[in-house]
Design a protein around this nucleic acid. Sequence first.
DNA 1: CTTGACCCTCACGTTGCGTGAGGCCGGAGA
DNA 2: TCTCCGGCCTCACGCAACGTGAGGGTCAAG
Lengths: 277, 277
Amino acid sequence: MRGMPDTTDADGLTVGQVSARLGVTVRALHHWDEIGLARPSLRTAAGYRLYTAGDLERLHRVVVYRELGLGLDGIRTVLDDTTTDVLGALRAQRTQVAERIDRLQRLGTGLDRMIEAHEGGPLLTDEQQAAIFGPGWDPDGPARARRRYGDTTQWRQYAERSASRSPEEWQAVADDMAGLDRALGEAMDAGVLPGSAEANRLVERHREVFASYFPLTRQMQVCLGRMYEADAGFAAHYDGIRPGLAMWFRRIIDAGARAHGIDPDTATWDGGQEQRR
Amino acid sequence: MRGMPDTTDADGLTVGQVSARLGVTVRALHHWDEIGLARPSLRTAAGYRLYTAGDLERLHRVVVYRELGLGLDGIRTVLDDTTTDVLGALRAQRTQVAERIDRLQRLGTGLDRMIEAHEGGPLLTDEQQAAIFGPGWDPDGPARARRRYGDTTQWRQYAERSASRSPEEWQAVADDMAGLDRALGEAMDAGVLPGSAEANRLVERHREVFASYFPLTRQMQVCLGRMYEADAGFAAHYDGIRPGLAMWFRRIIDAGARAHGIDPDTATWDGGQEQRR
DNA sequence: CTTGACCCTCACGTTGCGTGAGGCCGGAGA
DNA sequence: TCTCCGGCCTCACGCAACGTGAGGGTCAAG
């Protein structure tokens, strides 16, 4: 044991040995040396860094504080400046860590909501989905929604908005949608005619409510109107409010579009969109 | 309302206006333009950037994904590459976030432990402290410890080690300390003499156990031995194990130091330490 | 003497902008 | 008309903590 060639009793360890012992990279040791945070007190004739036991102690302390997330400058003051309030620095770091955890957790729920929305998950209850996209929803609904709307930009935008909207806020949107349905029924009762100011107001209101899901151009709205009339599920929903409402709704949408210089007969879902090169 | 000079209907917003609307800095907009992530589709004759409604949509999407913590490269692929698996990217990001939260939480408990140690908090129970530093501990103990050891490097090192040691591990150390006490008593019973191999082994054992708290040089150990004999509290503790053990312990420490070429009569707490410039 | 594992010193790359420096543009007041 | 002020432009460096070669000595072993 005495004569064994053991490195533990050498008067210095090289970077590689220190690296292995402390679990830090050689480059980090170089870096800490460069910036004067922890330099070896010895060098061989060839210029090799040699870390003494004292150097190792300091390095160890650096590692500890680094694992606690302190910046190298902070570590330097904690180690060198004996007048520093270590406790204060630690507490400051602690609150910072708590804040970062908070931020990350909010970020996580945002991600969760967005993932759920992409999956067509429970963000929208069946009733909510029915209120928005029509009533043709079975338990298989989300999958149908994806089949209907596919992997379109609009579906993505809907999902993206989920990230920052809580279920309650989505409920509010659904309520708005229900309120619009009621208003449509009442307007039809009152004999509101396509193209009238009242009808156009309702069309704009529909566009605005829908904009909570994704930006809806007037051209897109025209296409939606068509679908409300043509699709059995949607037609059933609107005609369930008032018989004939689906057709009437399509007509006031068309008239509204015309009032904005759009020919509803040539309108397409992607019409008038800029290209992205 | 028609003739009002309103910017909302302009065919483009300048960087400042976009910045105000989206809550991002002008520099960020410049940056995203530079790297081609989100560039304005228009420029004025003077070279001012003008962001159209379509540009704003894209910018908004960028902001959303950025808030979710995606890198700009990731955002670019999500926005541009329609074949990208957005869900996959989101889920990957989610697990990453979860991991980061984990890391931060471990880091937080490390900080907590270290802060508690600095405060002399409940890391060590009164019994544990007594076992280590001697029995002179009242409820006021921690404060006394700080008065005794002050704001020394050693106390800091003890605190630093707390960061990575759980209470259970500290208990193990305390157990080792208690075991050492027993061994000392038995050795004294057996008539072990200072300077004997058995005595030196015990001295080394004491140094190693103590090294769990902070690095203990042999010189420091000599000083500790003195204190064990001189301090009423410590003396009472060791003499409580066996009458005369405090003095005997001091003697075997001195002899052990001498065996390593140290003169116990001239040993100081800071002796033989390298200087930090 | 050569080999292969280490070591050295530059020196640029990374991420997402912050922060000036130096200068042009555009609307309002003297 | 001149001037002023706020906003816009383009460089271009800085940052935090190293990662990652490039190009070249050193050291113990075969």
